[in-house]
């Protein structure tokens, strides 16, 4: 074998287990999920997963692992701590992310520097235990993560329920905000495996455009930081629970989660007569 075990032309993925030799360090460089054995100077796998090769770089992608953030990822998180000018947010990665006061929108969409008075009322925006949807803004040199919610799409979550799935299952999509029209349910697919399933609320395009054109002031987005659920009709509650279970079921078979799969699976479920469904 030419260096890498089984990495041939065939499309079959190579699987490596912990401690297995995957390549010689003379011809290849080691990437994530591997380490160098000093004695035999070979590259060994440190996790169980698929061996991947890019030119001379060999890495092993584990089949199951915690979420590792990348800039631009959409994540759903839970506030764990309110600190000086920042919130700590649990996003299911190796450490909590920071959401700086300067990277959130003010209620009312006012565009200005954050003052001391804003700092004093941070708990009016997010409290411990609040769920929010945000984007990874930056990864600092020490590996900690900065989030931002500077979009009308982002911010506090309500009217729904959280499902936690393995982060590797969430596929990267054009948009991570899905709507299932016949379920009247919105889904926020966080790339960290946290998925928010909530009552469908029509997204007001004019508001979003107002933000884009920089008008800002005078917009009515007071609801953004509200803690109180709206009235959720019983059939919507049922479909929230149905979609949540559906997602868990797909994940329990380690099936990748994407907009198409969720939509198709729900339609399939929906095609049964409603009398046979839970509480139907």
């Amino acid at each position: 074998m030419g260096g890498v075990a089984g990495l041939g032309s065939d499309r079959d993925l190579t699987i490596a287990c912990t401690g297995e030799s995957i390549a010689s360090s003379q011809t290849f460089m080691r990437g994530h999920g591997s380490y160098l054995d000093q004695e035999t100077s070979s590259i060994l796998s440190s996790v169980c997963g698929t061996v991947e090769r890019v030119n001379k770089l060999v890495s092993v992608r584990p089949v199951r692992t915690r979420y590792s953030p990348e800039v631009g990822d959409l994540v759903v998180g839970r506030v764990t701590e309110v600190g000086p000018r920042r919130w700590k947010v649990d996003i299911g990665s190796k450490s909590d992310a920071a959401l700086l006061l300067s990277s959130v929108n003010l209620p009312g969409g006012v565009q200005r520097r954050k003052l001391e008075s804003d700092e004093l009322q941070m708990r009016n925006f997010f409290q411990e235990g609040d769920l929010l949807v945000a984007e990874v803004q930056s990864i600092f040199h020490d590996g900690s993560v900065g989030l931002h919610t500077r979009s009308l799409r982002y911010g506090k979550l309500r009217n729904g329920s959280l499902v936690r799935l393995a982060p590797v299952l969430i596929q990267r999509l054009k948009s991570h905000f899905l709507t299932l029209p016949n379920a009247e349910v919105d889904i926020v697919l966080g790339l960290n495996g946290y998925v928010w399933v909530a009552k469908h609320i029509p997204f007001d395009v004019t508001k979003a455009e107002g933000e884009a054109s920089g008008k800002g002031i005078g917009m009515d987005i007071d609801g953004v930081y509200s803690d109180v659920n709206e009235e959720i009709p019983i059939h919507v509650r049922r479909s929230i629970s149905r979609v949540s279970h559906l997602l868990k079921l797909l994940a329990s078979y380690q099936l990748p989660i994407s907009d198409v799969i969720v939509q198709k699976a729900y339609d399939f479920l929906h095609s049964f007569s409603s009398e046979n469904l839970v509480g139907g």
Partner: peptide
Amino acid sequence: MDAGIPMQDF
């Protein structure tokens, strides 16, 4: 291993 935590060996 199931948690995907890197280790030297079993």
